[in-house]
């Protein structure tokens, strides 16, 4: 066990110093490099150069000629570019990434991040510490809601909604169902019962139906002319992570995995039904192999 931990620590330490391992050292930028970068990226500020030399460093003093420079620059629109540039200032390639995303949005966003991160972690801790299974499921739901908000902060609006629908909706209901199957019913249900419960439930249903009807009467038909005249929604940086942008990727390069998922879900549905089908005496059912012989007779003996 100790040996495994030591190996992991060594691997982590080796991974923690990638720049020096690749032979790239932070160094002052040659003026030609800065002017070359400014020529291709006019809004570039804060140029940092990581240089690679033909020979390795000896006792901290640089040796050999510079043959490769990787420069990191900040761009005016909040992105960071990594520029592969020759010592003479010729830009070979440029890759972009976004710099600090929430930090640029102010302190309110930072507070929201901490709040939702706390919700996610606290819910997760709740899952693994509770003895009551329903409490654990509710902790899981809180964790998933927090994670959905975190998705939103990462500009993944579509996935945040999918997260809420699939995890906090469907999977939560699935877990609650199984917990209810496994546990005995509670002695005192919380929901009001009897005549009072029927009255309250009836009023609530009536309110919902009335609200639904009122909402449906206010729906207006879509204005097709303005809808068709609107500009195409896919533009870089303007609707990043929206349904349209994700859909364009999903039905383009991601079409095969998308179709494969439908087969996977079909197999999962059929498999779940086949496995969870009740064991019946005298029928050749697929679930029989799951249970060994002595256990099954014990179960039958205890059944009323």
């Amino acid at each position: 066990m100790r040996a495994i931990l030591c190996v992991i620590a060594v691997v982590l330490a080796a991974a923690a110093a990638p720049a020096s391992a690749a032979g790239l050292v932070l160094a002052p930028c040659p003026p030609a490099v800065v002017t070359g970068i400014r020529a291709t990226l006019p809004t570039a500020t804060g140029v940092k150069c990581y240089v690679h030399r033909t020979e390795a460093e000896v006792d901290g003093t640089p040796a050999g000629a510079v043959d490769e420079i990787n420069a990191e620059v900040a761009l005016g629109d909040g992105r960071v570019a990594t520029v592969d540039v020759s010592p003479q200032g010729r830009v070979r390639s440029t890759t972009y990434r976004h710099s600090d995303l929430v930090g640029s949005s102010g302190k309110g966003m930072a507070l929201l991040f901490w709040a939702f991160a706390l919700a996610a972690v606290a819910g997760a801790v709740f899952v693994i510490t509770r003895r009551n299974l329903i409490a654990a499921v509710m902790g899981m739901v809180g964790s998933f809601v927090g994670i959905a908000a975190i998705y939103m902060m990462l500009y993944a609006q579509f996935l945040a909604v999918v997260q809420m629908l699939v995890y906090a909706g469907a999977i939560m209901v699935l877990f609650v169902f199984v917990v209810m199957i496994l546990n005995r019913p509670e002695d005192e249900p919380v929901a009001p019962s009897g005549r009072a419960g029927q009255v309250i439930g009836g009023l609530a249903i009536l309110y919902l139906v009335v609200q639904l009807i009122m909402m449906l009467t206010r729906v207006e038909p879509p204005n097709l002319e303005t809808a068709m005249a609107a500009p195409p929604p896919i533009q870089q940086g303007y609707d990043w992570g929206s349904v349209g942008a994700v859909g364009t990727d999903l039905f383009g390069p991601g079409l095969f995995p998308f179709e494969a998922i439908s087969i996977l879900l079909l197999v999962a549905v059929v498999g779940a039904i086949a496995i969870a089908r009740p064991l019946r005496e005298g029928s050749d059912n697929a679930g029989e192999g799951v249970v060994d012989e002595p256990t099954r007779t014990r179960q039958e003996g205890s059944a009323p």
Binding site: V166, L174, V178, I181, L264, I273, V291, D292, R296, Q299
Partner: peptide, 17 residues
């Protein structure tokens, strides 16, 4: 989602036995 469905079905089947 598929994993949760199959996993919970296995849990139910094991619990029956």
């Amino acid at each position: 989602a598929a994993e949760a469905a199959v996993g919970l079905a296995i849990v139910v089947a094991v619990f029956r036995g």
